[in-house]
Amino acid sequence: MKNTTAILVFLQDESKDASNKRLTPKNNIGANQWVFSKLNSFVKQVSAATQLPVFYSNQLISKSSKPFGIQLSEAIQLVFEQGFAKVICIGNDCLALNKAKLLEAAEKLNNSETVLGPDRRGGVYLLGVSKESFEPSTFENLAWQSGKMLQSYLNQYGNQQIEWLETLADIHTFEELKGYQHAKHLIAFLVQTIQQKYSSFQELSVFIFKLCTNSYHLLRAPPSI
């Protein structure tokens, strides 16, 4: 039986992510971009582990100066055009997101019009939408990328049947990344990769060292995704 739910991973250029969020202890663009490349790899791996169909926004829509809401709306509509009735949208900034949580979202979305995974900033780390109730013009004009995003969604779509996931933290700063205790597998992955690609990159070495200081227990064998 054909799967009617797909995952849409919204990915921006790593350079754009790196200019908006600083995930390294110093302002080193190269190191910051490298971290975002690892976050992108991480979210791709987690999505693939669900065995649900996965689409990437940067493969569906071309580079654009359009507002975030319009770009996301266009990508969602393109997934619907592929024959899917439900779309789960995620980004690369929630390290607690894993296979189990994505499958939970898919199950909830089978029996509802919307699934919301709220973050701690007034936004969402996951948004599941249904083709039947999707309204592009309304969706595009929500308070995207602000602390009012979730409330604006509820103001417009509060009459829908909504299922909720647990509240999780996303990451916008180095301090938030360093304190993310759920990220054992990602931290181990970063440490393993640094010697393969950036062994002479001093700034990135400092980043990894600071990230793992007083957190050596994070470097144990990573759990399954």
Rank of each mutant, 00 (worst) to 15 (best):
K2E: 12
N3V: 08
L8Q: 06
V9S: 06
L11D: 13
Q12Y: 15
Q12V: 15
D13G: 11
K16T: 15
D17Q: 11
D17F: 11
N20H: 15
K21V: 13
K21Y: 15
N27T: 10
N27Q: 12
I29V: 15
Q33T: 14
Q33G: 10
F36I: 05
F36K: 03
L39P: 12
K44G: 11
V46F: 03
S47H: 05
A49W: 10
Q51Y: 14
L52N: 00
L52Q: 01
Y56D: 07
Q59F: 12
S62V: 12
S62T: 09
F68P: 11
L72E: 02
A75T: 08
I76S: 01
V79E: 00
E81V: 06
Q82G: 07
G83F: 03
F84C: 00
F84P: 02
I88V: 04
A96S: 09
A96K: 04
L97Q: 06
N98K: 08
K101F: 11
L103S: 04
E107N: 08
L109V: 02
N111T: 09
N111K: 06
T114N: 05
T114Q: 09
L116R: 06
R120I: 03
G122S: 05
G122C: 02
V124L: 13
G128F: 00
F134M: 00
E135V: 14
P136A: 01
N141R: 10
M149E: 09
S152E: 05
S152K: 05
L154W: 06
N155W: 11
Q156T: 12
Y157K: 04
G158C: 01
N159I: 14
Q161T: 13
W164P: 03
E166K: 10
A169P: 11
I171Q: 06
H172N: 15
T173W: 03
T173M: 03
F174V: 07
K178I: 08
G179S: 11
Q181S: 13
H182N: 12
A183T: 02
A183W: 03
H185N: 13
A188C: 15
F189R: 15
L190N: 04
V191M: 10
V191D: 14
I194F: 15
Q196L: 14
Y198F: 13
F201C: 12
V206L: 12
I208Q: 07
F209Y: 14
K210H: 02
C212V: 13
T213P: 10
T213V: 14
N214E: 13
R220P: 09
R220Q: 15
